[in-house]
Design a protein around this nucleic acid. Structure first.
Lengths: 241, 241
DNA sequence: CGAGCGATTGATCGCCATCAAAGTGGGTGG
DNA sequence: CCACCCACTTTGATGGCGATCAATCGCTCG
C-alpha cells in the first residue's frame, strides 16, 4: 500500500501538475474533481515573473485570468500626476484578473519572483459554463475581496497613520495564522514604498510609525522585512482607536 | 388589442407584484423567467422604512438579503471612538446584505424613506441552488461592487479634498446618466455629514469645497441637495489631478 | 572602497481638522 | 400669520497631523 503511494505519486504529478500544487486546495481549483482538473489544467499555462516585472498594466485588455502559486504581487493604480495607490496585495492561492470590464482597472506587478497559472479568458468562461459550481466559488472569492476592500476603505477614510500601520501588521499576521504559520512573526515581502502606497501614507511616515512601535516595545525588527509582534492584544486595541 | 392590455395589466400585477416593480429589469430579478419570478416573489416580503431608520446593524446576524426598490440607503461602520466611515450608498435596484460572514460587517440605514424586498437567507440560498444562472448574476454584482470599492480606495488613499468632492459629484452624475436622467443635474439625497463620512472628510471641508466650485462657476446649487454641473469636461480633468 | 538604493531620522510646511459663530429653512405652537 | 426653535449648512480663525524637504545611515554590489 505504501509502496503504491510512493510509486504512483510522481506519475500522477507528471500527468497532473496540479496535484503537486501547493495552493490547489485553497485556490479556485479546490472544488474540481480529478477529471475536471485535467481539463482545466490543459487550458492553462504556467508563467514565471521576476521581481519587479509587470503581469499586466491598467488599461490592458483583460483576456486572461490567473492563480498565483508562489510569490507576492501588488495591485496598483496611478493618477495622472504620478500619485500611486495600491489596492491590495496578492498572495499564493489568490485569484487575479477577476473583472467584468474589458480592461484591467489596476496594474499587477510582481513584488518578489512569482509563479502563476494563466488561463485565457475565453476558455475560462467556457469552462465556467460547463461547471456551474465553480461560479459559486468565484462568487465567494469576489465577496471575500469585497470585504477586504471595504476594510481598506475604513482604514483609509478614518484611521490615523499609527492605526493604519498597526492594522496592516495585524492583517498580515492574521493571514500568516490562517496559513498555519506562527502568529506573531510577520514577513513583509514589500518595500516601505509599497506599504506607504497601500496605506495612503508616505514612506517617511511608515518608517516613523514603525520606529515608534519599536520604541514602545510593541514590535521587534530583526531586519527591515521581518517584524515580531510583542503584544498582539494591545496592538489590536490600538488599531481601532 | 389595446383594451386587452389595459384589462390584463392590473390582473398580472395583482398576481405578480414584481411586474409593477420599477427596478425589476436592473436588479437581480431581471434574469428570472415569469414562472421563476413567481416562486421567488413568494419567498420574499416587502418592507418599508422611514428616513433615518436602521435596516440592520453591523454585527447583526446576516439572515436576510434585500433588493432596494425605492429610496436611498447608506452602508456605514463606526470605530469604537465614534468616527464613522460610509462604505457606500445603495440606490434603487441595488442588492443589499450580500455577505459570506454570519454577521453584517456594516450598518445599513435609510437616508430617505425606503422600500425593500426582503428574502430570508435560507430561502434565498435554496432558490440559488435551483437556479444556477442566478449565481452568475450574483457574481457580476459582487464584481461590480468590488470595482466601486476599489475606486473609493484610490479616492481615499490619494486624492485631495477638492478631487474627492468632484469625483463624488461625477460619480452621482454618471449614475444619473445610466438611469436615463439628465447628466448634469445631480440630486444628493444625503446630508453633508453623509458625504463627508463617505469621502473621509469633515462636513466643513465638504461645504467649503462645494462653495469653491460654485465660486469657480463649475457648479450651481439651486438648493443644498441639487447641484448642476456647469463644465463636466473640466470637472472630469480636476477629479484626477 | 565607493556607488547606489532603500530606510531612517530631523526640520519645516501646508492641507485639512478643529473650534467657533453666524446664516438658512422648515416645522410647531401661540 | 408670525415668532420661535432646532437641525443643518456655511463661513471664519486657528491648530495639528502627516507631507515635504533634506541629511544620514546601512546594506549590497561592482
Amino acid at each position: 500500500m505504501a509502496t503504491l503511494l510512493i510509486d504512483e505519486r510522481p506519475k500522477l504529478e507528471a500527468e497532473h501538475p496540479c496535484f503537486g500544487c501547493a495552493v490547489r486546495h485553497v485556490s479556485i481549483c479546490g472544488v474540481l474533481a480529478s477529471g475536471e482538473l485535467r481539463t482545466f489544467r490543459q487550458s492553462g499555462t504556467t508563467v514565471r515573473h521576476g521581481a519587479g516585472a509587470t503581469i499586466f498594466f491598467e488599461g490592458d485588455p483583460a483576456d486572461s485570468v490567473y492563480t498565483l502559486t508562489s510569490g507576492t504581487l501588488r495591485l496598483s493604480k496611478l493618477l495622472p500626476d504620478g500619485r500611486r495607490q495600491i489596492a491590495g496585495f496578492i498572495f499564493p492561492g489568490d485569484f487575479l484578473g477577476l473583472t467584468m470590464e474589458d480592461e484591467h482597472a489596476f496594474t499587477a506587478e510582481a513584488i518578489t519572483e512569482a509563479e502563476l497559472c494563466r488561463f485565457p479568458r475565453r476558455r475560462f468562461d467556457a469552462f465556467l459554463d460547463e461547471h456551474p459550481h465553480l461560479e459559486r466559488r468565484l462568487y465567494l472569492l469576489a465577496a471575500h475581496e469585497l470585504a477586504a476592500a471595504r476594510q481598506q476603505v475604513v482604514l483609509l477614510g478614518r484611521k490615523t497613520a499609527a492605526e493604519r500601520v498597526i492594522s496592516f501588521l495585524l492583517m498580515l499576521a492574521s493571514r500568516c495564522r490562517k496559513e498555519g504559520g506562527v502568529a506573531d512573526r510577520v514577513v513583509l515581502p514589500m518595500s516601505r514604498s509599497d506599504i506607504a502606497d497601500y496605506l495612503g501614507l508616505r514612506i517617511e511616515t511608515v518608517s516613523r510609525e514603525l520606529s515608534a512601535l519599536k520604541a514602545a516595545r510593541l514590535i521587534q525588527m530583526t531586519d527591515t522585512h521581518t517584524i515580531r509582534l510583542l503584544d498582539p492584544e494591545q496592538l489590536e486595541a490600538l488599531a481601532e482607536g
